[in-house]
Design a protein around this nucleic acid. Structure first.
Length: 561
RNA sequence: CGGGGCGUGGCGCAGCCUGGUAGCGCACUCGCUUUGGGAGCGAGAGGUCGUCGGUUCAAAUCCGACCGCCCCGACCA
């Protein structure tokens, strides 16, 4: 049923007032999705077609690497989640049944899939395995936002690999990289695979797939041949002009100066000629002073990774007791270990004197204080990677892959016997893809003033057929036959047979964004042809003789973006 | 969780300050006209003004509580 006159496609001229993100506005306006509650969305028929097409691509590529599709429940016993120590996660929905038994709504399915594998797999001969499902996920998000970009309920493809050792895990991981690269290529997106934080879960590797677009919640650092989440990105800092060196540090009076900007302003120096001291308390290690260049910022994630332990900013009393007045602390003459960021090149800097209203100038790392080198600053646009400047772009995370190791197999008892009869834990990986985010990213990346311009591989319809002319006209009769021809030829065609003006029909076609628009109207019908326009760029194509419609449309469907 | 904002017909909004039982544009229904870029004229239908309570002769409007939604931030194994 793809006659627009009877298709459930509620397009709107005006977007809801509270919709901000482009994809949110357009997906609602085009009648693809409708909101039910905060972070809760229905997919209307045309939107669901997009979703299904994305799922089909994912399914094909997962199957191609040997993935086996299954289906696990959303509602799961809380017990399993307690065993893996995930029951305390805030985002996890917890519910109770009529007998007061505790259940959860799954946000992923590591517990359940591992349970099955633990029950079934006995021997190294049963490995490796890749299992996946495409299933609803529930997350009690603190703040749903931007339409379908961040929701409390969404459908995700999550796969899980099971291998006997790290080499096997790496192979499964690499196979997922191949599959994911193909999936995102096929979906028509501009995307990057970036190194990502492995977090406190440990594991030996993690990547995120990022689609740059304005509504993105993440930031990626990009340079030719380089892409990384800014959470973990490293780059060479931009040079800063330093004042002349001194034989030894000298105190300078800096009354009331509490911030880098204050000090730099008073001394007439760029912020980069100062160093910034950031005292932190590290679990199991105590107080350390992290020092970065004055114009740089400490990156929480990189710091945690460099320390290899949880940390927190030192409190004011701790700073006053061990160092000096907050706002005037520095690395010289203290009995606290100093971690010096790589962004601080050799040379004389201005640093806090650990004495109110005074700073030191001419402070040289190594000469005036000892330090341990770390890389803990956030990279900035213009920093260099292999001599090339990076840019920082917002991006949507459309997929992630993660080497879990034995994080779940040990607590859930998933093990196997090796050739020697020794019991060993199974090594796991987990791999996710959010279908809705692919759709939203495509909208964001390719929309123009008129509306959406879908990549052909995930468009709800390949062809949007517009009939002009009123009931009983030759145009309408011809359009009917073109519609039937295309439909019987297996083309996904949406036929606008409504009694509406041309402007309205064209506007809706452009809003909905099918790659190819065909128009049956008097203008070209006289010469036995119909018009064709490519949605991407609104490029007029050669008119198509009626007798060749099916063949020509087939060609165009493969040729268009 | 902190900050800000908003709930009036399907969508977008006005009315609220200064109480007197609801209005505009689009969409919708019917008729006539129109028909290649969101048509014209005429006639209609559609609203517990988020909910509950309070003040008052009278509440969309004033007061209180609650609910919902959005944006920024925090958060996002």
């Amino acid at each position: 049923m793809t006659r627009l006159s009877s298709y459930f496609l509620p397009t709107e001229k005006q977007a809801p007032a509270d919709a901000e993100a482009l994809s949110h506005r357009l997906m609602v306006r085009a009648g693809l999705v409708r909101q039910v509650g905060s972070g809760l969305w229905s997919w209307l028929p045309a939107g669901w077609r997009v979703h299904q097409r994305i799922s089909a691509i994912v399914r094909e590529e997962m199957d191609a690497i040997g993935g086996q599709e299954m289906l696990m429940p959303v509602l799961q016993p809380a017990e399993l989640w307690k065993r893996t120590n995930r029951y305390g996660i805030e985002e996890l929905f917890k519910v109770r049944d009529r007998r007061d038994a505790e259940l959860v709504l799954a946000m992923t399915s590591e517990e359940v899939v591992t349970l099955h594998v633990a029950q079934v797999v006995r021997s190294y001969r049963d490995l490796p395995l890749i299992l996946y499902h495409i299933q609803t996920k529930e997350r009690d998000e603190p703040r749903p936002r931007a339409g379908v970009l961040r929701t409390r309920e969404f459908i995700m493809k999550d796969s899980y690999s099971f291998d006997r050792d790290q080499e096997g895990l790496q192979r499964s991981y690499d196979r997922h990289i191949e599959a994911y690269d193909r999936i995102f290529d096929r979906s028509g997106l501009r995307w990057y695979r970036v190194a990502s934080d492995v977090g406190m879960m440990g594991g030996s590797g993690a990547h995120e797939y990022m689609a740059p677009c304005p509504a993105g919640e993440n930031e990626v650092a990009l340079a030719p041949g380089y892409a990384a989440n800014v959470e973990v990105a490293s780059a060479q800092a931009q040079d800063v002009v330093l004042p002349p060196a001194l034989d030894a540090p000298e105190e300078v009076h800096t009354p009331q100066a509490r911030t880098i900007a204050d000090v730099a302003g008073q001394l007439g120096l760029p912020a980069g000629a100062l160093v910034k001291a950031f005292p932190v308390d590290v679990e199991g290690r105590g107080l350390v002073m992290v020092v970065v260049r004055g114009d740089h910022r400490v990156n929480d994630v990189k710091l945690a990774n460099a320390l290899g332990a949880p940390w927190r900013p030192a409190t004011t009393p701790e700073i006053e007791e061990r160092l000096g007045p907050p706002g005037s602390i520095g690395p010289v003459g203290i009995d606290v270990p100093v971690l010096l960021d790589e962004g601080v090149a050799p040379g004389p800097y201005v640093a806090g004197a650990n004495r109110a209203d005074y700073h030191l100038r001419g402070v040289e790392p190594g000469r005036d204080f000892a330090f341990e080198r770390v890389d803990v600053r956030s990279v900035e646009a213009g920093d260099l990677v292999d001599g090339r400047p990076i840019t920082i772009e917002p991006a949507i995370e459309i997929g992630n892959i993660f080497q879990l190791g034995t994080r779940y197999s040990v607590p859930l008892g998933a093990s196997y016997l090796d050739e020697q009869g020794a019991e060993r834990p199974i090594l796991m990986g987990c791999y996710g893809i959010g279908m809705a985010r692919i759709a939203a990213a495509a909208v964001e990346q390719f929309a123009d003033e008129q509306g959406i311009s879908w990549p052909r591989t995930i468009a709800p319809f390949a062809v949007h057929l517009v009939a002009l002319g009123r009931a009983g006209s030759e145009e309408l009769a011809t359009a009917e036959s073109v519609y039937e021809t295309l439909r019987e030829g297996g083309i996904d065609v949406l036929y606008d047979d409504r009694e509406a003006g041309a402007g309205e029909k064209f506007a809706d076609a452009e809003l909905l964004g099918a790659p190819l628009r065909l128009t049956v109207g008097r203008r070209t019908l006289e010469s036995g042809e119909i018009e064709a326009v490519a949605r991407r760029g609104m490029k007029a194509l050669d008119s198509i003789p009626l007798a060749e419609v099916l063949a020509r449309v087939r060609e165009l469907c493969l040729a268009l973006d």
